[in-house]
Amino acid sequence: MATSGTQLRFFLVVHAATGKSALAGPKCTRHCKINSNTPTSSSYEQRGQRSSDDNESSHENESSHENEVQHAEKLSQKRVSILGLFREPFLRRNITVCLLAISAQRLTGFPAIFVYSTEIFRMCGLAKEISSYGSVALAGLQVLVAILGSLLLDKVGRRPVLLTGLFGCALCTLAMVTFAALSGFNICTECRYGNLVALMFFMIFFVIGPASVPYLLPAEMFGLTSRQSASALVLVVSLALSTIITAVFPIMQVYLMEWTFTIFSAITLVLALFLSVTLTETKGESFLEIQKKLEDNFLGN
């Protein structure tokens, strides 16, 4: 009986232990499965990082594709030749304005004044020493006024600076003619010193506006396909006019004498009036805004 009782207790202990394990086993298994299937915060971060990387790579691919398309379009666009500038009406109007500006700059008489400044002073009755000092003063004045002109371009604008410079140059050359005539006819011998003052003011007006603005206009008025041709044409016209004026000026002095600069003054006034009507202001505007304004002016809006 004792033995059977002992066996009975051992059986109950073993059964209880196995029962708890059996009950605990499936519950632990289900809990582990639930925990294993539940996403953790680290998995969310990894998925978010992967999605953001995918988005960035897709955006980079799209932007690179767009850049390739734009580059291909630029390469496919045919560059406009110098003759082509005159075939298309819109480009023809713009290049006409640029050529008027560079012609007005050269025909102020600046090439002749720059090359023959000493002879001009002596022709007006100044002594040789004073004439030499006057030429040196003109060269130094150009440097000082150029700094001021670069500041005024962005603050005041291209159009006002250019027109003010052209009208100022025309008035100064008229003053030179007047002083030369008065001193030449012995009406006012002291008026010969007025030529030096008039030439100084001429240089101030010229350097402030006409010296630089005509070379800036092609870059602002023409697109990528026609800008190079427009700039080249403006430069060629500038050099050609400078050569012609420098070669012809001594002959003009022989026949016209003190009235030589009357021709330069009259031409400058006429061209300045044309530019006051046709030239568009471009201060503080982007290239697209400038093109829109030029198109509106071309269409008469």
Rank of each mutant, 00 (worst) to 15 (best):
T29F: 10
L75Q: 12
G184D: 15
A22C: 12
R30M: 07
G25P: 02
S131C: 05
V207P: 00
L23K: 12
R106H: 07
C191W: 15
S36R: 05
A137N: 09
P210T: 00
A104D: 09
A230K: 10
A16N: 09
D54S: 11
S276Y: 11
G284T: 10
F11V: 03
A104V: 03
L182G: 13
D154L: 06
V213M: 02
D296H: 13
M203Q: 11
A101S: 13
L294Y: 12
I244Y: 07
F298D: 06
L288V: 12
A247Q: 15
L166I: 04
E258R: 09
L107F: 05
V177E: 02
L138N: 04
E45H: 07
C169M: 08
C124P: 03
S58Q: 14
S43L: 13
L99R: 07
A24P: 03
A240D: 11
T164L: 14
A127N: 15
P210F: 01
L217N: 01
L141F: 14
T225W: 00
C124F: 06
S135Y: 15
T173E: 15
S132D: 14
M252I: 02
F264A: 10
V145R: 02
T225Q: 10
F167P: 04
F287G: 07
S231R: 04
K78S: 14
G84M: 08
R30V: 03
A24W: 11
P111Y: 03
L100E: 09
L166A: 08
K20I: 12
L275D: 01
T108G: 00
P111V: 06
P111G: 03
E68V: 00
R30Y: 07
S52D: 03
T260S: 11
E258F: 05
L182K: 13
S276I: 05
S63G: 01
L83C: 10
E190I: 14
P26A: 15
P214Y: 05
L216G: 03
S64I: 04
E129W: 07
E220G: 00
A180V: 02
I120W: 01
P214H: 05
K20L: 15
T96Q: 11
T18N: 07
T282A: 05
V145T: 05
F206C: 09
E258N: 13
V177A: 02
T282N: 07
V115E: 04
C32N: 13
A17C: 02
K27H: 13
F90L: 15
P26R: 15
T225I: 03
Q291K: 14
E66R: 04
L148N: 08
F261C: 04
E60N: 07
L182C: 15
R227E: 14
G209H: 05
M221T: 00
A230R: 02
T268M: 01
